[in-house]
Simulated assay, not measured.
Amino acid sequence: MNAAVLAQLMAQGNSDGADLATLRAMVEEAGDLGAGRALIRLGLADDAAHGDLAELRELLRAWRDAKRSAVRSALGWVVRMVLALVLVGIAVKTGFALK
């Protein structure tokens, strides 16, 4: 999982004519090397990264739950208001007046 292994595989592929197994090994090593670099750049290469990601997932799940709950509540209030307006409209049409 380092650049030296990838360089060795590339040299072997160059000298051997690059058989399928060598090419697959090169691609795998290049992928591992790139993934490692990406994790380092994102600051997720340390031992605490797993816990940090788990915590972020938990926070994201809580945010989605809160957002879903807020939308449901808002829709509930809108439905109640529409029903109240319909009742007021029916009362006005039927001549029901508060005196």
Rank of each mutant, 00 (worst) to 15 (best):
E55I: 11
R41G: 07
A84D: 03
A48D: 14
V78M: 00
A49E: 07
L60G: 15
V92W: 11
G17R: 07
R37Y: 06
A66W: 02
E55W: 08
D32H: 13
V88F: 01
L33G: 01
I40G: 10
E28L: 02
V82C: 01
L59H: 04
R80K: 00
N2L: 04
L33Q: 01
V92A: 06
V92M: 05
R68S: 15
A38D: 12
A91N: 09
I90E: 13
D16Q: 09
A11Q: 12
L83N: 00
A74V: 05
M26F: 01
M10V: 09
S15K: 13
W77N: 04
Q8V: 15
A97H: 11
N14A: 06
A91E: 06
L85Y: 12
G17F: 03
I90P: 15
D47K: 06
L9W: 09
S73M: 00
E55K: 13
G31H: 10
K93P: 13
Q12I: 12
G31A: 02
M1V: 07
F96V: 11
A70H: 00
A84R: 01
G76S: 01
L44R: 08
S15V: 14
I90D: 12
G43D: 04
D32V: 12
A25Y: 04
D19P: 10
V86Y: 07
L6N: 03
R37I: 12
L39S: 07
D16A: 02
H50Q: 15
A48C: 06
L87M: 08
G95F: 10
A35C: 07
D19E: 08
A3C: 14
L44A: 03
L87P: 06
L42H: 06
A62G: 06
A66G: 09
G17Q: 13
M26Y: 04
M10H: 05
D32P: 07
V71C: 07
R61Y: 06
I40H: 08
G95A: 02
F96R: 15
R68A: 06
A4S: 07
V92R: 10
D65R: 11
H50K: 15
A70G: 07
A97G: 12
G89D: 03
T22E: 06
R57P: 13
G76N: 00
G36W: 03
N2H: 00
V82N: 01
D65P: 10
N14Y: 10
G51D: 10
G13P: 08
R41I: 12
R61E: 09
A70E: 13
R37T: 15
L44P: 02
A4K: 10
M81I: 02
L87F: 05
D16C: 02
G31K: 11
S69T: 11
M10R: 09
E58W: 05
A45C: 05
K93G: 11
R80I: 01
T22C: 05
G51A: 03
E29H: 04
L53M: 03
L75T: 14
M10G: 08
E29C: 04
R24V: 13
V88M: 10
A30D: 13
A74E: 05
V82E: 02
R57M: 05
D46Q: 05
D46L: 08
G17H: 15
M10D: 11
K67F: 01
D19S: 05
A49Q: 07
L9G: 00
F96Q: 01
G43W: 09
K67I: 11
A97N: 11
D32E: 15
L44Y: 02
A49I: 10
N2C: 07
A7Y: 00
